[in-house]
Design a protein around this nucleic acid. Structure first.
Lengths: 147, 147
DNA sequence: CAAATATCAGCCTCACTGAGATAT
DNA sequence: CATATCTCAGTGTGGCTGATATTT
């Protein structure tokens, strides 16, 4: 083998799990690059989005609804408290819990991240029509809902 | 927030890059579990598939056609040489290169891995019809071809 | 006691970088 | 000299585990 094109093996290309992984790698490259200037990571966006939509939450709930592991939630919240995007306070009605709340600055930051991520999505899906993008989203959701 | 369902935030669910990542995580869980008993990883399957389809290759070409980094190719080939799935020999016509060749045992192993991975795909896509799976594959390919 | 929460320390895979040795 | 290959060492993220302290 000494070709220039270096085509992907058919057996790999035929594997949905492989294609999905390659697209995920591309997606992560794009989103990481989009967020780089902000000093925030994808985790942070996920938690800010949850706090914005659902209101103040315990760290455990935050982890459950975003699919982020409990130990990673701790680190991410620490980072965001430090930058003033969220506040952490003990739950008066349940001594085990911390209640995490998004701040005004945090909401602004969320909108900022959201816009940047929007651009990255467009770039990721540039080869698809609007209809195709919708179809894609629907099929992905179906897969996720099936587990 | 204290609901039991812990729904995913709408902003996350609406992000293709997020959905794709979640599906990729599920896919990796399934394929890793499927391959666990074999002692092989996804990288190994990718390289065996390339060697089987394209014939003996340099490590650089192997990395290029599978999307695996040059340094990771080294480690994976080491592991597979040790198990007798591939052979590594210097290229007589180019002193910089090693030529990697799949062995008979390696081909058997490839078929084994391939079957296990096939089962994992079915499990991953169990919520989709055959037509939908095809649509999915086509859309993913289009995205990959656009980069 | 059992279950839930938060925290900490650490593991492993994977994608990736940098640098050196060698060959073209 | 520039380029290509192979190798090694190491980095950082993401997903995850186990253990501990505390509360319910």
């Amino acid at each position: 083998m000494d070709n220039v094109a270096n085509p992907t093996p058919a057996r790999l290309r035929a594997l949905p799990s492989w294609s999905i992984n390659q697209v995920a790698i591309a997606a992560n490259r794009l989103t990481d690059r989009a967020l780089a200037e902000t000093g925030s990571r994808r985790y942070h966006f996920a938690m800010l989005a949850a706090l914005d939509e659902f209101g103040p939450s315990s760290q455990a709930d935050l982890g459950r609804c975003t699919g982020i592991d409990r130990s990673d939630v701790v680190a991410a919240i620490n980072a965001m408290v430090e930058r003033g995007f969220v506040e952490r306070s003990p739950d008066p009605s349940n001594g085990r819990r911390n209640i995490v709340t998004i701040t005004a600055v945090g909401k602004d930051h969320l909108e900022n991240l959201s816009a940047l991520l929007g651009d990255a999505q467009a770039e990721l899906l540039r080869a698809l029509s609007a209809t195709e993008s919708k179809t894609m989203a629907k099929l992905l959701s179906r897969i996720l809902d099936s587990r």
